[in-house]
């Protein structure tokens, strides 16, 4: 098992290095941090030189990434010019903010999706199943920016108009105490939950239906196993196997920052930082976030594989 994990991690390192190199070159090639300064030369020669130095602009485009790799190996991911902070600090602070909505969204979303899948799969092609499937179709068709705007307007502005109270905050993390924080978190998390549940429950339903049609489920019923146990023990354990991979992907994606949702709710997470970094040609921050999300993806895929092995005795790590 340990050897397997080591091997997997080592296998992704070259891929990551190539990806980072290409991203660095791409960002340098497509953006010009000097754009503003060119106009005011020679008056602002100092600022110009400062930028050249910060971004290593005197180094050839194709060689520039190596300077970055050199310091990155020493644990220094550089400094974000646009936010004026070390990249590691930003990743840490913003990462925590993102996790504040990502963790509840993931937990609630996955559980709700699972429950709905089981509900639907136990009575496929009935009214209840059709209703849920219909809703998930609709939810799945909503781009998250539309969903976020609709929820924000409906549950905050209109809600206040109708009922005269404002139960949720609509933007920016204030968070003095837990209750305030919960009011802040609620709407962005809800957006992610609805969009996620719509996608997951269709997958979960298919997985559960397939499992419930398996021969061993019939065997269990023929033994006299109560229907509850058939579903929650015999079927669920098998249906979870494909879901685990989906969850790993979802969670790592959420933790890397929901760009649209966080931006709409002005949530100071990784998503808006990513947008800023692109807009401002902030190479170091771009690379920092790319590494962050890549490492998360690899890590959670590994977790998924390990869970896979625990759930499914047929899998061997060798």
């Amino acid at each position: 098992m340990f050897a397997y994990i080591t091997r997997r991690v080592l296998a992704t390192v070259p891929l990551l290095v190539v990806a980072l190199y290409l991203v660095h070159v791409m960002v340098s090639a497509t953006t010009d941090p000097l754009a503003d300064f060119r106009l005011c030369l020679p008056r602002c020669q100092d600022g110009f030189d400062q930028i050249v130095e910060n971004y290593n602009l005197d180094v050839n485009l194709w060689l520039r990434p190596f300077t970055w790799f050199e310091s990155a190996l020493g644990g220094d991911l550089g400094r974000s010019e646009s936010l004026g902070l070390p990249v590691t600090t930003i990743l840490w602070d913003r990462g925590i903010n993102t996790a504040m909505i990502a963790v509840p969204a993931f937990l609630v979303g996955s559980i709700v999706a699972l429950l709905l899948s089981i509900y639907s799969a136990r009575r496929p092609y009935t009214k209840g199943d059709y209703a849920l499937t219909g809703l998930s179709f609709i939810g799945f068709a909503f781009p998250s920016f539309v969903m976020a705007l609709v929820l924000q307007n409906l549950l905050a502005v209109q809600f206040e108009n109708w009922f005269g109270v404002k139960p949720f905050n609509t933007g920016r993390k204030t968070g003095e105490n837990f209750l305030e924080l919960a009011r802040d978190v609620f709407l962005p998390a809800l957006t992610l939950i609805i969009v996620g549940v719509a996608a997951d429950s269709r997958f979960g339903r298919a997985s559960m239906i397939e499992t419930l049609n398996q021969d061993y489920i019939r065997t269990a019923r023929a033994k006299g196993v109560p229907e509850k146990t058939v579903v929650w023990k015999h079927a669920l354990r098998n249906a979870l196997i494909p879901l685990v991979t989906l969850w790993a992907l979802n969670f790592s994606a959420l933790l890397s920052g929901a760009v649209v949702t966080e931006s709409i709710y002005s949530w100071p997470g990784l998503g808006p930082a990513f947008l800023t970094s692109i807009g401002e040609a902030d190479v170091d921050l771009v690379l920092g976030i790319v590494i962050f999300s890549a490492v998360l993806t690899v890590a959670f895929n590994l977790v998924a594989d390990v869970l896979y092995g625990i759930l499914d005795p047929r899998i061997r790590f060798d």
């Binding site: 891929l15 990551l16 190539v18 990806a19 290409l22 991203v23 791409m26 960002v27 497509t30 953006t31 890397s256 760009v259 990513f274 692109i278 771009v286 976030i289 790319v290 999300s293 890549a294 993806t297």
Partner: peptide, 15 residues
Amino acid sequence: NLILVVPFLLTLALF
């Protein structure tokens, strides 16, 4: 894998 490891949004934006 290379395409998947770089966030889509980044590639799209840079392009």
